[in-house]
């Protein structure tokens, strides 16, 4: 689906979302109220210039006390890989974007990431994975590390990696694998009204960071939830 098709299905009552090259800003109307919309689209990398524009929008929303949710449409490449971005401190810009989303959430704005295309590595962490709830559309293709790069580093041929990937969701790219490790809460049905699916999601309260528990239930991450809980129990005494 294109961003325009997604927005039409999400907000049949109307939306005012404008594009600035590959970024989106605006709002849509649900029966339950306004939803702030931001987006990083076009499979573009996220460098310092994109990150600072997105964080500005999130902080502006955060300063409005309307407690309206923020929907973040995501279809990116990885972080921008360049001398300029690293020279100027890309890690700070990506962290700042993530912090802004987390602050917005703490101020009462539900943050929903909608992954409808690609996203990878640092860009994925600072956008989709920094939202309180991450949902995806079928065909989304998150990847932390592509198999050819993995083959190079692990010195294993791609067919061997593909064979190993059948037994575990823990390293290979792809939506199903990210779902199984607990990174994605729901995969929506593109054939149904996205508006209804978003409304239903917003009607369900979110209780903390449950990604490890979710990953454990699906046998994708068998240890994370237990290890984190044990440390919390021992250290929190």
């Amino acid at each position: 689906m294109t961003p325009a098709e997604i927005l039409d299905s999400l907000f049949p009552a109307g939306h005012a979302v404008t594009a600035e090259i590959d970024l989106l800003f605006g709002r849509g109307m649900l029966e339950s109220g306004t939803v702030h919309v931001i987006g990083a689209t076009g499979r573009a990398p996220i460098g310092i210039d994109q990150a600072i524009r997105l964080s500005a929008a999130v902080l502006e929303i955060t300063s409005i006390d309307d407690a309206a949710p923020i929907l973040f449409l995501v279809d990116t490449a990885s972080q921008r890989m360049s001398r300029r971005d690293e020279l100027l401190g890309l890690s700070e810009y990506l962290a700042h974007l993530a912090k802004s989303l987390l602050l917005a959430e703490a101020r009462g704005h539900r943050t929903i990431g909608l992954l409808y295309g690609g996203s990878a590595a640092g860009a994925f962490i600072a956008t989709a994975l920094a939202c309180g709830t991450l949902v995806a559309l079928p065909g989304a293709h998150p990847e932390v590390m592509d198999l050819p790069s993995m083959a190079r580093v692990t010195k294993l041929p791609i067919p061997v990696l593909e064979e190993k990937a059948k037994a575990t969701p823990v390293f290979a790219p792809g939506l199903d694998n990210l779902v199984r490790v607990g990174g994605i809460a729901e995969v929506w049905d593109a054939g149904r009204s996205l508006s209804e699916q978003l409304t239903a999601l917003l009607a369900t309260p979110r209780a903390g960071d449950d990604r490890a528990t979710f990953g454990s239930a699906q046998h994708g991450r068998t240890k994370a939830a237990a290890v984190a809980s044990e440390i919390l129990a021992v250290a929190g005494r």
Partner: peptide, 21 residues
Amino acid sequence: VRLQEANAGEIAIAEIMRGVV
């Protein structure tokens, strides 16, 4: 992120960042 468990490591980073913030 540890390449051999990239998906688990990626989400772990997100969980840690949330924990710090």
